[in-house]
Amino acid sequence: MIPSTFDYTAPSSLDEALKLLHDFGDDAKILAGGHSLIPMMKLRFAEPEHLIDLNNIPGLSYLKIEGGMFKIGAMTREVETEESAEIAVHFPIFADVAKLIADPQVRNFGTLGGNLAHGDAANDQPAVMLALDASVEIAGLDGRRTVGIDDFFYGFYSTAVQEGEILTEILIPIPSGRSGNAYHKVERKVGDYATGGVAVHLEFDEQGICTKAGIGLTNVNPTPLRAVRSEAALVGTSLDDDAIASAAQYASEDCNPSSDLRGDIDYKRHIIKAVTKKMINKAKQRAFKN
């Protein structure tokens, strides 16, 4: 499989990239890790005339803590989030999720920004970002704006990143108190897209009452889905069995999976229910491990 012809530019600054993007408009695509785009080009499902490679732009790959936020540059590779001890302090969920994304070689190149900007509900990171209540920074020729994750995913391969814009940073609020998070997906074999995946983030007060719950679901909805009723079922409780069972039940009811080779709708709802329960328990366990 071989892509059709295109022109290639690798600008050395973000401004230059934005200008090129503006000039080429619809005919251009951005190349980050390339591990979603290039396979589509090889299949000739995508045939851009111009490819703008962001890999030569300095300053887009970093992990840092600033103003109570964990900030991740959009070009940060999945492997860096997987291996970062700094992230793991508050967010062991990154090691959970990264391990299940494709394979080590792909994670060496695939970027967090690309994973989100691809706008694919089958990708795993969107659910994690929903659970962590992230926001993303988007740059355009007119400047930068920040979009909450709930306003980011529009539809099939469609996000808040508009024509002429580039996603530059992911911001995740750092919990101040006791917290825990976890991700798991059921997959047909390692590296597969999820049959169903669940990301859970929980925060607790000193009495052990859940003060904040974030639950994101992978590949069971046309867009990455926040399990709103499930979250509500947990907040204000000490996560007793009933609360967890309700949250799991709501998640299975509120998702909207489609039937495919991975399973029918009933099966996927069943998976979501089972994995939601497991991940709430795992996140809770992590929160109270010390």
Partner: peptide, 11 residues
Amino acid sequence: ITPYKIFKALK
């Protein structure tokens, strides 16, 4: 035999 097939059989 996949998890999905087991689910269907049990269902």
